[in-house]
């Protein structure tokens, strides 16, 4: 039996909103040691999502037997919208489940809402992702990255990211003209989450699909900062840290023909 109780429903609500536009169906893997993990690839096989919610993400967590819960994320999102962000949220499944029970509790108002979501058999490839060496790692405010990704998409379907030891440059080249945004590295000791940190082994110049970057920044409400790891001619990793877990996106770069 799985029983995972979140102190607030907001984490799960934000996680599902962050991934449901990229993948429609996915398997939730549940185990006592790892908590809940997800690996899902979008239909175009350009963007991969890796979610980890450790048992420490939950107020209470037990999973007697490893479970795979196949979910339609649009349906899950409809149910998660029924609860308030500050409600307790509990996910419950039997050992051989055909449905997932989702319970919201508002202890102050003595309100309990229960929903049952039908599960599906989902056949999906799992990709092996080893710890990668990277040429540079950038940590910046998640909102600042989201603004650049959203703004630059209006100019071009591609966004070039160039990193040097003291700045990150985002560049778009479109039919109406060009644009660039430079963010300089800075350390804000009063408010560390406002810092822009660049750890550079080698300068990087990579181009990504603006559409996918806009899918990634849907995770912005989950964390104050995002860490981006870039390597020449390899997928980039975008990480939003959660309390006791993470939501990572791996995005394949574009290449010149």
């Amino acid at each position: 039996m799985l029983e995972g109780k979140f102190e607030t429903a907001s984490t799960m609500k934000k996680v599902i909103e962050a991934i449901k536009d990229s993948v429609k169906l996915c398997n939730l893997n549940c185990s006592q040691n790892d908590g809940i993990t997800v690996q899902a690839i979008d239909d175009s096989r350009v963007l991969l999502i890796a979610l980890k919610l450790d048992p420490s993400c939950f107020q209470e967590f037990r999973c007697d037997k490893d479970l795979v819960l196949g979910l339609d994320l649009e349906s899950l999102s409809k149910i998660l919208r029924q609860g308030n962000p500050e409600d307790y949220l509990t996910l419950i499944a039997e050992d051989s489940p055909d449905s997932l029970l989702i319970v919201f509790e508002d202890s102050k108002k003595d309100r309990i809402s229960e929903f049952s979501l039908k599960l599906m058999d989902i056949d999906s490839d799992v990709l092996t992702i080893d710890e990668m060496e990277h040429d540079c790692a950038i940590t910046l405010p998640a909102a600042a990255f989201a603004k650049v990704a959203r703004d630059m998409k209006t100019l071009s379907e591609s966004l070039q990211i160039l990193v040097t030891k003291d700045s990150v440059k985002f560049k778009a080249d479109g039919s109406i003209g060009t644009g660039s945004v430079i963010l300089r590295a800075r350390t804000n000791l009063d408010d560390t989450k406002e810092s822009i940190l660049i750890d550079l082994n080698k300068p990087v110049n990579l181009t990504f699909g603006a559409k996918y970057l806009n899918d990634i920044v849907k995770a912005t409400p989950l964390a104050d900062t995002v860490t981006i790891k870039l390597t020449d001619k390899a997928p980039a990793m975008f990480e939003y840290k959660l309390q006791g877990g993470f939501l990572r996106y791996y995005l394949a770069p574009k290449f010149e023909d």
């Binding site: 175009s44 490839d125 290449f255």
Partner: peptide, 14 residues
């Protein structure tokens, strides 16, 4: 603006 690569060319199916 380049060709969009797929993850399959970087990561193997487990």
């Amino acid at each position: 603006t380049g060709t969009q690569e797929r993850l399959d060319s970087f990561f193997k199916v487990a």
